[in-house]
């Protein structure tokens, strides 16, 4: 998958994932990998800057949680502004998806 596409699609996917409940970096990468049948493999170097940017925009908020084994994890959760943003981005992606699926698969396009 192209770098630009990964970068562009990361935001709505993270927002949508967090809309289902709070989560942390490691789990987000695992979950996206699992849901895409390992087709989308995010790297930490790509994920954390996006998370921090979303946090700066106040679409998500973070808190440190200490687990039972003393391990600290930074959990992210969606904010009100984040929900609005997600709705908007979701709409945009649906529009792209509709056009692409309406045009059909590449092997069916007559030359």
């Amino acid at each position: 998958m192209r770098k630009e596409l990964v970068a562009a699609s990361a935001e709505p996917m993270i927002l949508a994932l967090l809309a289902r409940g709070e989560s942390y970096g490691y789990a987000i990468i695992q979950e996206i990998g699992r849901r895409s049948q390992e087709q989308i493999q995010w790297t930490e170097g790509m994920l954390y800057p996006v998370l921090h940017r979303l946090e700066e925009n106040r679409w998500i908020k973070a808190r440190w949680v200490e687990g039972e084994n003393g391990r600290k994890r930074k959990y992210y959760a969606l904010t009100k502004a984040g929900q609005k943003e997600l709705a908007e981005q979701h709409q945009n992606w649906l529009a792209v998806h509709d056009v692409l699926s309406g045009l059909g698969k590449a092997d069916r396009i007559p030359i």
Partner: peptide, 14 residues
Amino acid sequence: GPVRDELESHLRET
């Protein structure tokens, strides 16, 4: 800082 702590937590998890 928080960025390194977060990466370290990730490293340990992996």
